[in-house]
Structures are given as structure tokens and as C-alpha cells.
């Protein structure tokens, strides 16, 4: 038997399969946008799209971090609480009179530190990511109310500037600073995943952690890194959220981890790890954003339909992943 005859699947039939989920998400997004435009005249306004980005910039950043974690086959339940904690700490430190820059640095350090610790617990003590990040979620949410039971407003000049600064074209359409930050984070993440050893190790671990270990890849370091990255993204998300709301509130972003996971899955990343793209996650976040916009435009639908539709989409996309058989394990 020659080696050639062992190649059973023809090249042309094999390549696109990994891309099917992302393409499906793109198609869905276009269809939903088409529905919006055909149903509501105001929907075709370009600012509607910009607003989707403005409203969901922080979600995108957090979802990008979650993509790293899910690609390794893990999960991070702590993201929503870390977002809230970051916003809360920023508001509190600003209130106590620290300079904005210092506050920014401190706030951006807390998330990754927690992520690093969670990663260590997962790697060194072999406790399931689900449980460790659940504890992280409790911890971060507890810290929020420990700092203050009530919402703390932010009046700092830097924050208000960031909140109100509009980057736009002459016709009056604009995006906020958050959108640029979000896109920068997504671009960096996409680059890291595609072109760096860290990124490729992330995929390898998601594909088969035992093999990755025996191939000599730094499994432990990578695993700790992804939770740290997720923590950093949550921290950036928290800062963006505090730009957006100009306050730190102890109960903000409750349940956000579900939206984030949903966005990542709808974006085509396989929850067992090893397959998915940051671009898909961007699309997934946009799908969630457009759903919300559609439901807002349609006055007769209530907010709970958002959850039901997201649930339905999750179902559809997971079924799709099953049908095209993206399961390497």
C-alpha cells in the first residue's frame, strides 16, 4: 500500500469545514441586518451600526479573552464579576483622589492578577476550571460590595473625556474611544493566536493536552497565560464599562459571562477547544448586539425575548457544530 492511497479525504472537501461556523455566523448577521433595514427605516442609518459597537465594545473585549480560554478547552466564569470589580475599584480610587493614570494602572493589574492565580490553581492543583473560576466569580463580586454597597459615580476629568469624546465623520456619525480600544484588542488577539507560539500552543492544548505535553509544549505556562489574558481582557472591559457608565456599581454585569460564552460559541469557537477564531467572536458579539437593537427597534417585543433568542441561536449553532462534525476528540 502506498502512502498516497491513505489520504482518504480530498483536499477541496476538507478545507472549508473549519470555516463553516464562522461563515454561518456572518450569513446570520447579514440576514438580521437585512431584516432590520427592511423593517425599520432608521435602521439603515450607519450610526445604528456604530451604536452596536459603542454599546458592546466592552463585551467584545471580554469575549476576546474568553476565546483564548475556550480554545484551550477551559472556561472562565469570573469575567462578569471581574469587569464589575475593575469598574468598582476605579470609581473608588478616583473618588479617594488618586490620579487617573495611577488608577488606570492599578485597575488594569487586578484582573490579570486574579486570572493568574486562578490559572495557577487550575494547573498546579488540577482543580476543574469551572470550579476555580466560579470561586473567582464569587470573590470578585464579593469585593465589589466590600468596597461599597452602592454605586460610586466617576467625575474624573480623564474618564469623562474618554466617555464623551467622539471620533466621527463630518456627517455626524461617530464612535467612542471604547470602540477603538476594542478593535485594537481584537486585532492584537487575532495576531497573537495566528502568529505567535503562545497562540499556537493555545490551539494545540485545545486539540489534545496530553499530546501537547509530550510534544514538549509549555502546557502549564500556556494554561496560566490564557486565564491571565482573560483577566486582563476583563479588566480592560471593566475600564471601558466605567467609561460608558461613568460609575462603578456593585451589581453591574451580573450574568455577563453567559452573554460572553454565548457570543464566543455563536462565533464558531468549539467549546471543547482547539477550533475557532477571534474574527468569529467579533461576529458573535455583533449578532448579540444586533438582536438587542432589533428588539429595541420593535417596541412590542420585551427584553426577555433577547434571552430566548440567544438561547435559540446557541442551540442552532451547537447543532451546526455537531452536524459538520468539528470534534477532534
Amino acid at each position: 500500500m502506498t502512502m498516497n492511497s491513505l489520504t482518504t479525504v480530498p483536499t477541496w472537501a476538507r478545507l472549508p469545514r473549519r470555516h463553516v461556523p464562522v461563515l454561518a455566523t456572518l450569513a446570520l448577521l447579514l440576514v438580521m441586518y437585512g431584516i432590520g433595514v427592511s423593517q425599520y427605516r432608521a435602521f439603515s442609518n450607519i450610526q445604528v451600526i456604530f451604536n452596536v459597537f459603542i454599546d458592546n465594545g466592552f463585551l467584545l473585549v471580554v469575549a476576546v479573552g474568553m476565546t483564548f480560554v475556550i480554545l484551550t478547552g477551559g472556561i472562565d466564569l469570573s469575567v462578569g464579576s471581574v469587569v464589575a470589580m475593575t469598574a468598582m475599584v476605579s470609581a473608588w480610587l478616583l473618588q479617594s483622589g488618586l490620579p487617573a493614570l495611577l488608577v488606570l494602572v492599578i485597575a488594569l493589574l487586578i484582573g490579570p492578577t486574579l486570572g493568574f492565580l486562578m490559572g495557577c490553581a487550575i494547573h498546579f492543583f488540577e482543580i476543574q476550571p469551572f470550579i476555580v473560576t466560579l470561586a473567582g466569580m464569587f470573590f470578585a463580586r464579593g469585593m465589589c460590595t466590600f468596597i461599597s454597597g452602592a454605586s460610586i459615580p466617576i467625575t474624573d476629568g480623564f474618564w469623562t473625556t474618554m466617555s464623551q469624546y467622539r471620533i466621527g465623520d463630518p456627517r455626524g456619525n461617530f464612535v467612542s474611544v471604547s470602540v477603538l480600544v476594542a478593535f485594537a484588542v481584537a486585532a492584537v488577539a487575532a495576531y497573537v493566536l495566528a502568529y505567535t507560539r503562545l497562540g499556537r500552543n493555545v490551539y494545540a492544548i485545545g486539540g489534545n493536552p496530553q499530546s501537547a505535553l509530550l510534544m514538549g509544549l509549555p502546557v502549564g505556562r500556556t494554561r496560566i497565560a490564557v486565564y491571565t489574558i482573560s483577566g486582563l481582557c476583563s479588566a480592560i472591559g471593566g475600564i471601558l464599562l466605567s467609561f460608558y457608565t461613568l460609575s462603578g456599581a456593585p451589581l453591574i454585569a451580573v450574568g455577563m459571562e453567559l452573554d460572553v460564552i454565548a457570543a464566543v460559541v455563536i462565533g464558531g469557537t468549539v467549546l471543547t477547544g482547539g477550533s475557532g477564531y477571534v474574527f468569529g467572536t467579533v461576529l458573535g458579539v455583533l449578532v448579540l448586539g444586533v438582536i438587542q437593537t432589533l428588539i429595541t427597534f420593535d417596541g412590542s417585543l420585551n427584553s426577555w425575548w433577547t434571552k430566548i433568542v440567544i438561547g435559540g441561536l446557541l442551540f442552532a449553532f451547537i447543532l451546526l457544530q455537531r452536524l459538520i462534525g468539528i470534534r477532534y476528540k
Binding site: W304, I308, F315
Partner: peptide, 14 residues
């Protein structure tokens, strides 16, 4: 974890 996540999200809405 995913199968029940669907109902976790949609069930609140329901």
C-alpha cells in the same frame, strides 16, 4: 455544559 447552558439562558427569558 453547553446543552444546559441553552436552557439556562433561554429559560430565564421563558
Amino acid at each position: 455544559i453547553i446543552a444546559t447552558l441553552i436552557l439556562m439562558v433561554a429559560g430565564r427569558g421563558l
